[in-house]
Write a protein that binds this DNA or RNA. Sequence first.
DNA 1: GATGAATGAGCCTTCATTCAT
DNA 2: AATGAATGAAGGCTCATTCAT
Lengths: 224, 224, 224, 224
Amino acid sequence: MDATVPPPHSGAGVEDGDRQPTRIQALNREIILEAALEVFSVHGFRGSTVDQIAAHAAMSKPNLLYYFRRKQDIYRAVLERTLRDWLVPLAAIDPAGDPVEELRRYITEKLRMVAEKPAASRLFANEILAGAPVMGDFLETTLKELVDEKAGIILEWVRRGQLAPVDPHHLIFMIWATTQHYADFDVQIRAVMGERVDRPGFREQAAQAVLTLVLNGLKPRPVA
Amino acid sequence: MDATVPPPHSGAGVEDGDRQPTRIQALNREIILEAALEVFSVHGFRGSTVDQIAAHAAMSKPNLLYYFRRKQDIYRAVLERTLRDWLVPLAAIDPAGDPVEELRRYITEKLRMVAEKPAASRLFANEILAGAPVMGDFLETTLKELVDEKAGIILEWVRRGQLAPVDPHHLIFMIWATTQHYADFDVQIRAVMGERVDRPGFREQAAQAVLTLVLNGLKPRPVA
Amino acid sequence: MDATVPPPHSGAGVEDGDRQPTRIQALNREIILEAALEVFSVHGFRGSTVDQIAAHAAMSKPNLLYYFRRKQDIYRAVLERTLRDWLVPLAAIDPAGDPVEELRRYITEKLRMVAEKPAASRLFANEILAGAPVMGDFLETTLKELVDEKAGIILEWVRRGQLAPVDPHHLIFMIWATTQHYADFDVQIRAVMGERVDRPGFREQAAQAVLTLVLNGLKPRPVA
Amino acid sequence: MDATVPPPHSGAGVEDGDRQPTRIQALNREIILEAALEVFSVHGFRGSTVDQIAAHAAMSKPNLLYYFRRKQDIYRAVLERTLRDWLVPLAAIDPAGDPVEELRRYITEKLRMVAEKPAASRLFANEILAGAPVMGDFLETTLKELVDEKAGIILEWVRRGQLAPVDPHHLIFMIWATTQHYADFDVQIRAVMGERVDRPGFREQAAQAVLTLVLNGLKPRPVA
DNA sequence: GATGAATGAGCCTTCATTCAT
DNA sequence: AATGAATGAAGGCTCATTCAT
């Protein structure tokens, strides 16, 4: 409708040039992303409103949009930022290490992350439930490559008899499922467990259960 | 029966009087619930629109609202209906049966249900991620009671040495996590596994992996 | 962001299928287009608001948008509808007729149309001033072809000595300019002429002036 | 001079005090007005944004508003400035000169101005189409007086038989219409004429056509 | 039973304008 | 003289819901 005129907003906003962000910019972006994580992780993209995020960030809506021009931009930013951290523990699996030990470390680390930032886990869950409209590419490229690599390592361990014979991909899925479950289904767990969830030691107890089941199932057994 | 006064009851529409629903009414309600499941399971309650559901049901929006007066009513109905089926396999765990066999049956049954109606699993996931605003009560009452009961059974099995020492609640959570994961994170699994997902045998392979890990982890081991 | 779900609004609105419009639909669309003409012709596309149009149409904004889903759609509809009528007088120029008489008829007809629907003329003026973002294609195809055809006729008249030697395109532009001026610059004319504008006979006087100048300038003159 | 109290005058910004504008101030005002002309002339007042103007002026929005505190102020300034020049050729019509020659000069001069600053012409057109909300007063006073005066001169020429009998006001309108048309409807003319518009000689050709038609129509004719 | 028509409330986004530096 | 940051007030459009037929 308007090809003759430069797009609006070209003289404003924060994402314009490539200038270094000022201190207040960095701070506010941080605040916004934190707030957005909180909101998006509960209601998903479509169910969340910019108003909610602005309220969480204690910021006026237009000011929030001064930092991220579109709701999508905020969403993408939170998602990407969290994605960066998310794969670190998996990537750290060392083919030269002891199989069971490596897996134990991976699971433990993952549980720690999930306990520390359950909202991040829920954000992913929501995105994937919605069909991964934004994260789709990432899943099919970066994630797939990493998983395939690590699956290869696990397969090798199995071949060498260092692990019970298990399909490595499914093993990885199971670790994801069990570790993230404590964040994603937190409400359900609280409903069932009641106050026990907040007692000290609950996290350790959960970790113990996950490790016991997964690792015991993996340890090569004497032929019986 | 004055038409100018809104009907006093909540679930209005067709459920009004005490008349039996006609065949077409029952059919349409069925169609709507099926459509609603499809839509809500992807976008959650807030992210879904009545329009989408109406479109899926190939029905006009006012007609749909004739059967369920409010979006919430549809949501609640589809949720409740699915809940009824959902707990059957868990409830079926028999204290008198063989522990490993009972668990194997439970897991297998759960995987079958999830594979057959993945949308139902996603509907729950969405509801719980959103904080279980509707299902909350159910979780804290019906579900909790059932889980506690079954946890008692498992605990007894452990005491008797029929199972490795595992916290029964966490065991149940892990079974939930791993079985539902294949539905809830389907998109991710497809992204990572590619076409393999649609090959025959994939489901069996997944079942095998879940069973292997969980059950092997549970079988009482020789003192080593 | 949402490729997995059919586009919203698919079950609503009026433009959906190819069904015949009901009587009330036709009526309301008419009312809306009339109101839109009034508003767009004054403020142009970007300067007009859907609110204004709705107010002019004595209709709520969402109801208006029920008939035309986007502001653009309304604009395009008014424009296209007016375009249809706009070229009729030009198209009617008959190569077999008397040149001066044909032009007189054209000018007179154009003045009549402009006097009857000055808003239509202003709508065009606005669209063209804005760079014809919507009408551009039409100008370069339909209009150009028609003008070229009629220019050919005029040129032939000139060649035969039936008209003074004038570039036919420029002649057409001048007729457009002078006839539309009375609508487009109405405010200015009123400011300068005061009440005289509303006196009976003003229109005829204007027509006389236009005809006198243009046609006298065109009549072939004795070689002097 | 208290900084916490808003300045009492309307045209604030740099025009504040009685200080002479520095060189850079004058320059920037010039740049802004030039940019504003470009933008307002295309989209009109309501359709234009301060952002667009700032972008055209390669200036930050707050800085622009430092020079003109409100969008209206810029608009008014650019309009008034252009108005000053606009009437010069009309004012120059000399009652003592040769009628046809005077008109030829007026038309030629007007065409030159319009060709040189088409944006100015479009700015007027937009303002008048919008109902002359800002220029209204000017039209009813200054312009009307000038036109009336010149109309008197023309009338006298007609009376003396130096011009064909034409209503002088309408004659002036026609000259305005035809001369400004080439700027205001430039897009349309380009669409119809194609590349010919940019060929050398096009302007002269247009001038010739306008002069031929208008002046031939005016030359007193032998009684026929 | 079914649907066309209508609307208040809300949501994303833009924009003129102000504030602080 | 200049700019980053902030905001109230729209504006376009969607959506759940109601009304009338």
